[in-house]
Simulated assay, not measured.
Amino acid sequence: MYIPEKLRYNVQHYFGEEGENWLSRLPQIIKQCEEHWNIVVGDPYSLSVNYVAPVVWKEQNREAVLKLSIPNEQYLQELEAITLLQEGSMASLLDYHRELGAMLLEKIIPGEALATIEDDEKGCFIASEVGKQLWIPVPVSMHVNPTNTREDELRDIVHKHPNGIGPIDYQTLEGAKETFTLLCKTSADLWVLHGDFHPYNILFSNKLGWCAIDPKGGIGEREYDLIQYILNKLPEDDAALESIIIRRMNSFTTQLSLRKDRLIGWGFCHSVLATVWTCKEDGDYDKSFYKGMRVFQQLWRETRGGHQ
């Protein structure tokens, strides 16, 4: 079986030996899924760190989507998140196989991504409406990771990189860590979050209207869940990029009655972490995320009266 190079690189980069072992077993896992559900698996979609492909589910006489992940703690969190968020604007989980790290999901038809909408203000309005239906108050008992696990991740990065990492200097890493700590300590309005809420994960369904797919899960403030959306599909021009970030923030805070200072703070510390995730050994990194980080960093300084 051909494994796309992007999938191979990402899985190896993020999961190391565990990822290598999973990739070697992937053909057998797909075969087991076909036998378990009596499905025919088609060619995969564009892949990141999961294997996702359309399927024909023979017994149900319907199309669906097969998503395969390494069956680790992250998979279990995603499984719980999609289960909890089923009542909102979310593609349905049809079935799952925990040992195989497999989910059988509703296929969204026609599946047009919100990222294809050229009117940015309209895109923000649609995303806000999806978010209103999607986010739910935190239940009494759940295992989805709270936002402060990202704080722990960044603290580990700061410890391991005393000279900074990629284009990010140590002072910025330290400032982002302190910001994470401050915001986590002062968080009050907590919700179950999507965890990867961006315009490529919001699709149009003939049945549901605009809906979300591929939740990663999380517990935190809604402001935090919007940062990945704001960082996506940004122009290359610096002035235009800053203008769009500010316009998106204004749109979300107005439509969802959110706090702009919290949105800016989460924007700074998460954009640092998001940029770090893209840093490669050859020195390459996501330039758009980095530029977005610089905008949020300056806005956070202004919000804090000139301090990081």
Rank of each mutant, 00 (worst) to 15 (best):
W57Y: 14
N50G: 10
M103D: 00
L93T: 03
L84G: 05
L76P: 00
N50S: 15
P71R: 01
L93Q: 06
M103T: 04
A53Q: 12
N61W: 07
E34A: 13
L76F: 07
V65F: 04
Y75W: 06
G101W: 00
V40P: 01
V55H: 07
V52H: 12
V56D: 14
G111E: 06
E87I: 12
K67D: 08
E34T: 08
N72I: 03
N61L: 13
E63S: 14
A53E: 12
Y75I: 03
L100V: 01
L85G: 00
K67E: 07
E112C: 08
D95H: 06
S69V: 04
N50P: 10
I29S: 05
D95N: 11
W37T: 00
M90W: 05
E80D: 11
I70G: 00
L114A: 12
A91T: 09
K31T: 15
Q32S: 13
N38Q: 11
D43W: 01
E106H: 00
K58G: 13
I108S: 02
N72Q: 06
E112H: 10
W37N: 00
A53K: 10
Y75G: 04
V52A: 13
C33E: 02
Q60K: 15
W57N: 12
W37E: 02
Q86S: 14
E87K: 15
I109G: 01
E63N: 14
Q86A: 14
L68W: 01
Q32N: 11
Q77A: 10
S69Q: 05
K31G: 13
L23H: 06
A64R: 02
Q77D: 07
I29W: 05
E35G: 03
N72S: 08
I109H: 13
E59A: 15
R98I: 10
Q28F: 08
L84T: 08
E34R: 05
Y96P: 01
Q86F: 03
N50V: 12
R62K: 15
I39F: 07
E112A: 12
Q77R: 11
E59K: 15
P44D: 10
K67A: 08
A113G: 06
P27W: 04
S69L: 03
W57F: 13
L93H: 05
N61V: 11
E78Y: 04
K67L: 10
E78T: 05
R98N: 10
E59P: 09
E106D: 00
I39T: 07
E99F: 02
E35D: 14
V41K: 04
W22K: 03
L47Q: 06
G101M: 01
V55E: 08
A102K: 03
K107A: 05
